[in-house]
C-alpha cells in the first residue's frame, strides 16, 4: 500500500483534483461504453418484437 491514510489517498500529494477528475471522467466514458449498448439493445429488441407480433397477427387475420 502506497498511502498511509485515507485522507492521504484522497489528497494524492496535492494532485488529488487532477487524479480524481481524470478517473471520474474515465468512469463516465467507460459507463457510457457499457450502458449505451445495453440500452440500445433493449430498445431495438423490444421494437423488433412488437413489429414481429404485429406482422404475425396481420398474417393470421388475412
Amino acid at each position: 500500500m502506497y498511502f498511509s491514510s485515507f485522507s492521504d489517498f484522497i489528497h494524492m500529494g496535492g494532485h488529488g483534483l487532477y487524479v480524481w477528475s481524470s478517473y471520474g471522467i474515465a468512469m463516465l466514458v467507460v459507463l457510457w461504453n457499457v450502458v449505451i449498448p445495453l440500452l440500445k439493445r433493449g430498445t431495438v429488441l423490444a421494437s423488433l418484437r412488437q413489429r414481429l407480433i404485429r406482422e404475425r397477427s396481420h398474417e393470421s387475420q388475412a
Binding site: 502506497y2 498511502f3 489517498f9 494524492m12 500529494g13 494532485h15 487532477y18 487524479v19 481524470s22 466514458v29
Partner: peptide
Amino acid sequence: LLFAPADYQQGNSFRIIYLHVPS
C-alpha cells in the same frame, strides 16, 4: 491507485497515465 509508487518527478499525478495510455 493504491499500490503503484508515485513518480519521483511528477508525484501522484503520474497515476493519470494508467488511463491516458490505454485510451
